[in-house]
């Protein structure tokens, strides 16, 4: 995810009419811009659409694609579907968890990495599969994990 700052929340609000129907559109846009929906952003969305906070919170916690905590710059998703599971994806999760210092579903303290598990990516022939941001990695091994983590951390250090 390309880090972005100085995103104007009000500009996002103005993309949609101020009605309850705009709730999910706005939440998606906020999620895309900030990688999460902060309490301030959620309050603003509620003010703008007229949806009560309890309902907006229910929607935000219902959908997996909304996050209420900041996500890392890089999201690493490990597939735990049947084929990948048989090919040892759980060990991949454990290894990544050890290396990054967080459990699956959590983000590192410095907000650099988020580790997730997913149920099936539909790329079973490539099992075990790991998705790093938008890139699908096939037949992942310990060596490939090393390479991935090295690339990701270099990306973070070198970004202009």
């Amino acid at each position: 995810m390309k880090p972005a700052i100085d995103i104007d929340l009000d500009e996002i609000m103005e993309r949609y009419p101020g009605r309850p129907e705009s709730l999910i559109f706005l939440m998606q846009d906020v999620q895309a811009a900030f990688s999460y929906i902060s309490p301030e952003a959620l309050t603003l969305v509620c003010d703008y659409t007229g949806v009560p906070m309890s309902q907006a919170y229910a929607v935000a916690t219902f959908y997996q694609s909304f996050s209420l905590e900041p996500r890392g710059e890089h999201e690493i998703k490990v597939c735990l579907g049947t084929a990948c599971h048989l090919k040892g994806s759980q060990r991949i999760v454990d290894e990544l968890s050890r290396r990054l210092g967080v459990d699956a579903g959590q983000t590192t303290e410095d907000l650099k990495y988020t580790l997730e598990t997913v149920n099936c990516l539909g790329a079973c022939a490539l099992a075990p599969v790991v998705v790093a941001d938008e890139d699908y990695l096939a037949n992942v091994t310990a060596k490939k994990l090393n390479k991935l983590l090295k690339e990701l951390s270099q990306d973070i250090e070198e970004r202009p």
């Binding site: 309490p39 009560p52 906070m53 309890s54 309902q55 907006a56 919170y57 229910a58 916690t61 219902f62």
Partner: peptide, 28 residues
């Protein structure tokens, strides 16, 4: 949560999460 929304009008609570993790609570 329905009573809170429709009778009282306070909208203080709702369902949170989904599936096996669903519970009732106030925001956050």
């Amino acid at each position: 949560s329905r009573v809170c929304a429709q009778v009282v009008g306070a909208n203080a609570i709702s369902t949170v999460g989904r599936g096996v993790h669903k519970q009732i609570g106030a925001p956050y």
